[in-house]
């Protein structure tokens, strides 16, 4: 013990000074960079607002979205009173009511719950499948052929019969298993959307991996004996994060819209179960008379997607060490 101490004293000049504060962790850097990104903060804020809104909104605005009030149908949003005092509007229904007198604000809140849940779940599931297939196909030569032909196969399948078949086979068992038609349908819809939308992500990730794995830093990693799993996790995945982020944003929009298309086929939620996509498509025929009925859900879908996009941008920048710290 003493020997060492004396040696240290000898080489005192070579010794580092005590660090004045603990080293900054990587994640702290990431967070600092992320905070600088205004778009990301806005996106995150809006998403948080929407998420809290749809989660707790029903407690603040407790009108049921399916409550009919046919005498008070076709109310306009309350702001139309500003320029037209004769219009049927009022604070009882701030966003107005639809053709059966259902409150639009309440439909937006409840619809948002479902749309957000379906959108996120389907998007995340589709990204997981797509990334896994893409990485495996790009990195392992033996898996490439079979996985990419599987992708070709799924791309070729006609969606409508596939969806109808899925309903025939799985609706009853799922409804029974989950005890209620809504949760059974939720699982079915999320799986159908995810299982038919992962292919683009898979092809893109594979394309990037094919190029990346021939680069010098992978060769370097391999030559020091890094395992395949570690190469993928530490070296390849961080480098394909940006196309995955783009896929995620586009995928969220697609999932929210696809959900509404499915309900036309009788595959979606029951018809009196509002979702943003369904509210939008139901209102298209009346868009001249009641523009708010298309604009409100359209705005919410767009803003959600835009927020996710900015969030993705911010995250991408924050995770990229070359941009970080500049």
């Amino acid at each position: 013990m003493t020997d060492q101490t004396s040696e240290m004293e000898v080489f005192g000049a070579l010794q580092d000074k005590e660090p004045s504060k603990p080293p900054r962790s990587q994640w702290r850097d990431v967070w600092d960079q992320f905070r600088k990104h205004k778009g990301a903060l806005f996106g995150g804020g809006f998403l948080l607002f929407i998420t809290l809104g749809v989660l707790f909104g029903p407690y603040l605005w407790d009108l049921a979205p399916t409550k009919l009030d046919i005498r008070n149908k076709d109310w306009r949003p309350v702001y139309t009173l500003l320029w037209d005092s004769d219009v049927k509007a009022g604070w009882a229904h701030p966003f107005g009511t639809d053709q059966l007198g259902r409150d639009i604000l309440s439909q937006m809140i409840h619809g948002g719950r479902v749309s957000m849940a379906v959108g996120w779940a389907a998007m995340v599931l589709s990204l997981l499948i797509g990334t896994a297939v893409g990485v495996a196909a790009g990195y392992f030569k033996r898996a490439d052929f079979i996985l990419m032909r599987l992708t070709d196969l799924v791309l070729s399948l006609p969606i409508l019969p596939l969806v109808l078949l899925a309903v025939t086979l799985f609706r009853q068992p799922l409804t029974k298993f989950f005890g209620s038609p809504e949760s059974g349908m939720f699982v079915l819809i999320v799986s159908v959307i995810a299982l038919t939308s992962w292919m683009q992500t898979a092809r893109i990730v594979r394309g990037d991996i094919l190029a990346l794995k021939e680069r010098e830093f992978i060769l370097a990693a391999r030559s020091i004996g890094t395992t395949d799993g570690k190469i993928i996790r530490r070296h390849l995945l961080p480098n394909v994060i940006s196309p995955i982020m783009v896929s995620a944003t586009l995928g969220l929009a697609t999932a929210i819209i696809t959900e509404s298309a499915l309900s036309f086929l009788g595959v979606g939620f029951p018809s009196d179960f509002p979702t943003w996509g369904k509210l939008l498509s139901d209102a298209v025929n009346r868009m001249q008379e009641f523009p708010e009925r298309v604009l409100l859900p359209g705005f919410l879908i767009s803003m959600t997607v835009l927020s996710v996009n900015y969030l993705g941008d911010g995250l991408r920048d924050a995770l990229d060490p070359r941009i970080r710290g500049r």
Partner: peptide, 29 residues
Amino acid sequence: YSLFDQAGTFVTMVGFSIPPFFTGPLLIV
């Protein structure tokens, strides 16, 4: 992050998230 980039992002993302079953009839109207 220039103005062009921001505008491009906004237009393309809004454009993508609004489905053709709405934009189509809107243009017709």
